[in-house]
Structure formats: C-alpha cells, structure tokens
C-alpha cells in the first residue's frame, strides 16, 4: 500500500516536471497567438504582456485575410492543391501497392526495385531537370503542375503495400475462382480491408502538401496562385516591421492544420509510428 502510494507520488512529480518542459515547446505558439491580438506598439513591450493591454485582434486578422495579400485566396489555393494531391496520390499509391503485392508477375519484382531506388533519391537533386521539364511542357506556374508533382510519391506505395501484404492471398484467389477480375477484387475486397491505412496515409499526405514550401517556391511565380507557406513568407518580407500582422498570418497558417491534427491525432501518430515515415 505504502509503495503504491509512493509510486503515485513519483508519477505525479515526473508529470509536473514534464509539464514544465512541455511549456518550452508551447510557449512560442502562445506568444505568437497573443501577439497576433496586440496593437503594433505593444508587441515588444517588456515584461511580456501575456494579456494584451489593448486589443487589436479583429483589425489584425481583417488585414491579413482581406488586405493586400488576402489569405482567403491562399487558403483556397492550399485547400485545392492539398485535397487534389492527396486524392490522386492515395489512388495511384493504392493501385501500385495492390499491383506489387497481390498480383504475381515476373516483371513486378524488378519494377519494384526501380521504385525502391527512386525512393532514395533526394527530391532536391532532381529539381533542376524537373524545372526545365515543367517549363517546356507548360506545367510551370500552375496548380495542375504542382498537384502532379506531389501525386507520385512512392512513400504511399511502400506504406500501403505493407498493409495489402497483410490481406490473405486466399481472399484474392477465391475471389478470382468466383470469376472476379482484379479491378473488382481491388475495389470491393482489398481496398475496404486496408481503408484505415489509406486514411492514415491521406491525412499525412494532406499535412505534408499543406506545409510544403519548396515546390511552390520553385514551381509557382504568380502571386494569385500561392499556397499558404509561400504567401506567409511573401507576407513577412513585405510587412517588414508589422510583427502583430505577421503573427496573425502565422496563426492563420498554423491553426487550421493543428485542428486537423488534433482531430486525426490517433491516425497521424499511429501512421508515423507504424511506417516510420517522414515527409
């Protein structure tokens, strides 16, 4: 009884210490949020005002969302690009994963090795030829090009292949004996069985696409096409010293995704742990 109580106290103590450490991780976000509510002259007042003396929240956010660099437009761009990339990538990956795991054909093994090889190529080593290619086939500076670029990540193929391999081959064989073709088996037997894995991959792909800065930076030129990260950077370099506005933009860039994350938290964390995947 006594040792049990002591263990409880120790756990409470460790929890308290860990809580203090976690503040280190959250404080920059808290500062960002509070600063976005302030008037500009109060941003750097020291000691830090954790409760704004003078509220300017509505004006700040109005400026960010509907000012010279209207975030509603960038939101729409980001939503469009992220959703379409996620949908196409999930479909293409699931098809390939099924092909590599559930259909036995000689070329499959070799082609899988090729795909595995491309996984090791760092994306930045191929930016220049991609850029030249895009300039020449008219995919430069438009959303379609950006979506195509994000849709052929082989990571999804690897992840989903693992799960398709867990689907018993007997299911497939017996469906085939019953006259089922591969497209039918894929769509109505195999895919439903790995639906949670597809959902996890989709959430991850959505987050990565939403946060991607490098590809939009290189493959977009027109302001009106910018996605959130690129707009965020543009906004910062143009707003210069207006830190309250910059923080309102940062909050706008971070919080919606945070909500997606907190809702899908379990799948995101499990997916990352399971596949050991990294954007």
């Amino acid at each position: 009884m006594h040792t049990l109580l002591r263990a409880d106290w120790r756990k409470a103590f460790v929890t308290a210490v860990m809580f203090a450490v976690s503040i280190l991780f959250l404080l920059p976000f808290v500062w960002m949020l509070i600063t976005s509510f302030k008037v500009e002259k109060d941003v750097f007042v020291y000691p830090i005002q954790w409760i704004p003396r003078e509220w300017n929240a509505i004006e700040n956010y109005k400026e960010v969302w509907f000012g010279d660099y209207p975030f509603y437009l960038y939101y729409w761009n980001s939503i469009k690009v992220s959703l379409l990339t996620t949908a196409i990538s999930a479909l293409v990956s699931a098809l390939a994963a099924y092909g590599f795991s559930k259909i036995q054909f000689a070329a499959g093994k070799w082609l899988f090795l090729i795909v595995l090889f491309t996984y090791m190529i760092p994306g930045q080593a191929i930016l220049i030829p991609q850029f030249i290619l895009y300039r020449n086939i008219g995919l430069f500076d438009n959303h379609f090009g950006l979506i195509v670029l994000g849709s052929f990540s082989v990571l999804g193929t690897f992840m989903l292949r693992q799960f398709f391999m867990g689907v018993h081959q007997e299911f497939i064989e017996s469906a085939k004996i019953d006259g089922g073709s591969h497209p039918r088996i894929f769509w109505s037997i195999a895919l439903p069985l790995v639906k949670p894995a597809v959902a996890t991959y989709a959430i991850l792909r959505f987050i990565w696409t939403w946060n991607d800065y490098q590809n939009p930076l290189i493959f977009l030129r027109t302001d009106g096409l910018f996605t959130i990260p690129l707009a965020m950077q543009k906004f910062t370099s143009l707003s210069g010293e207006f830190y309250s506005l910059i923080m309102a933009a940062a909050v706008s860039a971070i919080f919606p995704l945070l909500i997606v994350f907190i809702i899908g938290q379990k799948s995101v964390i499990e997916g990352i742990a399971l596949g050991g995947v990294k954007g």
């Binding site: 070329a107 090729i114 082989v154 073709s181």
Partner: peptide, 23 residues
C-alpha cells in the same frame, strides 16, 4: 493486370524522378 495497376505510379516516377536524376 499487374502492369495496369502499377503503370500510373511507374510512369509518373519515370518521368518525374528517374529521367530527372539521369538529367
């Protein structure tokens, strides 16, 4: 069928990754 299922990914990877790394 194997080729049909993997070809979208394969073609994408060839054009967007394999050809660029050679280039």
């Amino acid at each position: 069928w194997g080729m049909v299922f993997i070809s979208p990914m394969l073609i994408g990877v060839m054009i967007l990754v394999l050809f660029p790394i050679i280039a």
